[in-house]
Design a protein around this nucleic acid. Sequence first.
DNA 1: TATTGTTATACTCTATAACTATA
DNA 2: TATAGTTATAGAGTATAACAATA
Lengths: 145, 145
Amino acid sequence: MDHEPDASELLVHASHALRRSWMASLEPWNVAPHEFRALRAAADMEPARLSDLADRLRIANRSVTEVVDSLEGKGLVQRAPSPTDRRAVVVSLTESGAHMMSEIAGARSAAGQAFLEPLSEQERATLSTLLARLVGDSPPHRSHR
Amino acid sequence: MDHEPDASELLVHASHALRRSWMASLEPWNVAPHEFRALRAAADMEPARLSDLADRLRIANRSVTEVVDSLEGKGLVQRAPSPTDRRAVVVSLTESGAHMMSEIAGARSAAGQAFLEPLSEQERATLSTLLARLVGDSPPHRSHR
DNA sequence: TATTGTTATACTCTATAACTATA
DNA sequence: TATAGTTATAGAGTATAACAATA
């Protein structure tokens, strides 16, 4: 029943370890993981329609309402009516939201670097190349849809 | 604000893609992901004390009661009093649970292979080596604690 | 005094359905 | 007729606290 872990098992183990480290680096800001994901997506697509956020985050429309409510409650984003579609709502980051995003992104990237520390520059490049092939080469979740 | 994804970002993207494929391969069996995780852990540590399962799965003791209840309700595992500690309960797989585990493991490994298909044998080996270094070399979650 | 598993309860994240207002 | 976002409601998965039995 015991077997050597193959590349796919190792992949999820490594990603779990990294994710735990990222979650830890999120703590000082009192922002839940799903809130950070939404904040990052909003920053990335700014100004973002709620339904586009739903697609990007792979969650239901209703759930976007939820997380945007909480981000708005924390003063990190703000809603505005879409200028082009009167049914739609777009969110953008407040100054404080943008500031927090950049601080968290810094901590996150530091944690990522620390995680990759066992590998040389050369090895990281190799890893990146192989992983990019696995996710289909095209950088995932790019802003242009 | 747009930046090239580094190895750590790619790592989670790849692992997410793989996890989605694994979840899909779980569907035919009507077993939720967290149930499969618990079933696999139980198989791996058999006979497993509930509190050891909690440690392994990184969830609270109370939550193990929950998932073991549901696995037991599906006839996949069974509880028994620990022979060495009268406070404790151990779970073991039923015949049907063991059978399902091996079928799912097969489907899962097939999905893993399909996912790795873009890489040559050589490249998979390289990937494994690099990832193993990242997770600390010692194969993660080995039975001996 | 500490630990095991459970009962009771509640939280977080996400979902479906029904509705309003636009398109 | 279809879509965007919301209100109302519910589900899954996990958590904390209090407890009884045992260590």
